[in-house]
Write a protein that binds this DNA or RNA. Structure first.
Lengths: 259, 259
DNA sequence: ACCAATTTGTCCGTATGTATG
DNA sequence: TCATACATACGGACAAATTGG
């Protein structure tokens, strides 16, 4: 790589802005990224071995590796069992996790979380009512059955609640909506567990809301779907306040340590 | 780092599940990440030099560097002008860009984009109506003034449109909502430019909608805000179809090459 | 404004374990 | 089974940039 910065002679007036020297490892990453984004290399195709990249870019192995790591981290490049390099499809889950972490670090409040979740849940359930297939409805019912059996176990119910909303998201068949909703869901889930531990009637109410949810989806009743999505989330908020918490507090970062 | 995999002797019955060997560079990254997520190192604090990390983790410098790169990539660690390492706050913009790229690679359709954008726009404008300050209203008006002067220049109007919605997002004072909305916005923007180039009445209609938007915000009129947000986005959809495009097509990846 | 110490960016070479044919 | 290719990790090195006298 030819580019390094050149410092202007100390005495001379600074006539030029300093050249933005992109480090070699970043040039490597960006070059490969461009090929993928532009679609010239497609997901599932091989990138080549490290040695090949070394000779193509004319840099050292260490430099190539630093660049590759960036792409692996964002999911654009994957390694299979043999550690060979392939173009990958970044998976939502990882991105959503990172977003939720960013939200926690920025100390967003539970009120922001609640306010943003409501419209996204409503939109999701509407789409799910429109497009749910028998298979996903069956999965939802199976989730409800498991929730019934787990009613006494708050953390299990919270996990099943998250799974439930994931299934509704899948039923919505709208990936943009899913990706927008998922980070919030990741933050709501641990709070749900806390609420269920402190508010006894929480779990049965949650189960009932889920039942009505699925019923609305099965009957393709958008209004009922919206109604129960709203009630379900309102229950969450009420339970939150009943548990003695303040909506305007930042989300505790403790909730993310587990992941 | 002590952990490597150990292959069981070929003849022996496989009594144990294979150990998941986390590579050293990843262990380094995860260790530092945990400290930051848990809040034991706070944004703005120094991480230490590479040499220090080498001695603390007991690994080679190349290994440390590969690990650090991951954290730099996700924004958890920053380097200042002197390239020293600091804890950083991941900025939304980068995350949003990654998400929009992921959406394009997954070939989501314009219909998904439209359907997801609507409720988020509505929620955003509602919150903005509630909480906009005189300063952000002034910025919105200034944006409108610039849009008036740029009416003949589609790409400039599209840019100002994106800025406008960014300002509305800021006015909403809900960062969860903003982060959820931004990836979609990044995908809508280039499409807006395409539409404005092909549909002549697009720019004046856009400007008018913005005017009514701000008027609603100034009058704290939630209903009007929702109405014009809906019309504005519907204009986008109609313009899209008027331009001869199909809503059910995947988003062209061409739109992301520029970034 | 100069100098010395630190630190980063990059490179070279090597040893070892693993996967593939 | 064995040989080969390859990724992981290590140690050492040097030039350029930055820092702090």
């Amino acid at each position: 790589m030819e580019s390094r910065t050149a410092r202007p002679p100390s005495g001379a007036p600074s006539r030029f802005r300093r050249v933005a020297a992109t480090p070699a490892y970043r040039q490597v990453a960006e070059a490969i990224e461009r090929e993928i984004i532009a679609g010239r290399i497609r997901p599932g195709e091989p990138i080549g071995t490290e040695a090949q990249l070394v000779s193509q870019f004319g840099v050292n192995r260490s430099t190539v590796r630093e660049g590759i790591r960036l792409l692996e981290h964002s999911g654009l490049v994957r390694r299979d069992s043999s550690r060979r390099l392939w173009v990958g499809l970044p998976h939502y889950g990882r991105l959503a996790l990172r977003m939720s972490r960013a939200l926690v670090l920025h100390e967003v409040t539970f009120r922001e979380l609640y306010e943003a979740s409501l419209p996204m849940q409503l939109a999701t359930v509407e789409a799910a009512v429109e497009r749910a297939t028998p298979e996903t409805i069956a999965q939802l019912e199976e989730n409800i059955a498991r929730t019934e059996r787990a009613l006494g176990d708050p953390s299990e119910v919270a996990k099943l609640d998250a799974e439930f909303h994931g299934l509704v998201g899948k039923a919505s068949r709208n990936r943009v909506l899913q990706l927008a909703r998922e980070p919030s869901e990741l933050l709501v889930m641990p709070t749900t567990e806390m609420i269920l531990k402190r508010v006894k009637e929480g779990a049965p109410r949650l189960l009932h809301a889920h039942r009505m949810y699925v019923d609305a989806i099965r009957r393709r009743d958008k209004q009922a779907g919206r109604l129960w999505a709203r009630r379900h989330l309102e229950d969450w908020r009420k339970g939150f306040e009943r548990a003695g918490k303040d909506l305007d507090q930042p989300i505790d970062r403790i909730y993310l340590e587990s992941t």
